[in-house]
Amino acid sequence: MTLTAPPITRDHAYELSHLDSLEAEAIFIMREVAAEFERPVLLFSGGKDSIVLLRLAEKAFRPGKFPFPIMHVDTGHNFPEALEFRDRRVAELGERLIVASVQDDIDAGRVAEETGPRASRNRLQTTTLLRAIEEHQFDACFGGARRDEEKARAKERVFSFRDDFGQWDPKNQRPELWSLYNGRIRKGEHIRAFPISNWTELDVWQYIAREDLEVPSIYFSHKREVFERDGMLLSVSAVTPAQADEPTFVEQVRYRTVGDMSCTGAVRSAATTIEEILAEVAATRITERGATRADDKFSEAAMEDRKREGYF
């Protein structure tokens, strides 16, 4: 035992950078899921986090095929740029895509469309997601959620258990030690697996830069007609029309998250390259969800409540 720190003796040959460590951990998690579950699926939104998941899946399973399909829960209110990107990327990878559509659930009367100017299909996604999981009998879903995103997510497990109603019980989670993930479930239950739990928004962008990954164009600065609502800049569109008292204007913006158009705001930005985005993210003082997601602003526990119901 020493009182002061011993001289640093390091074998630099056996060190990994933080991105390499995070990547190795994520690949390990993906392979654990592929090995322990019969019918996994990878949830893909077209956003940066699920784009990273796709690259990690390539790293985990190539030269083989992915041992799972890719599924997109389509609210019908997606950014067209994200949909175009989704189809192109999945085709490039030569993998299977399943689209679960919120519109189908509305048409079948399983959910009712919200009304009013703040109507959003964000919450309706949960029904569609759970229906698709049941229909396809998925027993594990990869998601791109990160613990730094939101405080309810800070306590979520890497293997997060869902009961047969798809519910999350934050007070009764399995302790998770070392890299020994407990994937035991019964029929009807499933696991949400989060390979990039330990990544931050900055890590994700650094990884996108390092891996030279393409992202939808709306992540980069562009001119867009917007209006301000609840402190956020919303795009003027059929989904989010401006009200009479909401003046519209053209602004130089980009998106930090790519969610449903009805609840995803843009941020003022001049960043047109990944390097400029990195500089912006490193200097920002607002979390990505705080800046751009109305869905998390409804209450102090909005995310926790949605997650309990089975949300992503």
């Binding site: 950078s17 991105l19 990884y207 990195l278």
Partner: peptide
């Protein structure tokens, strides 16, 4: 400049 940042160690 920030790409150099990707060589951080993890603790």
């Amino acid at each position: 400049m920030l790409k150099g940042n990707s060589l951080l160690e993890l603790l």
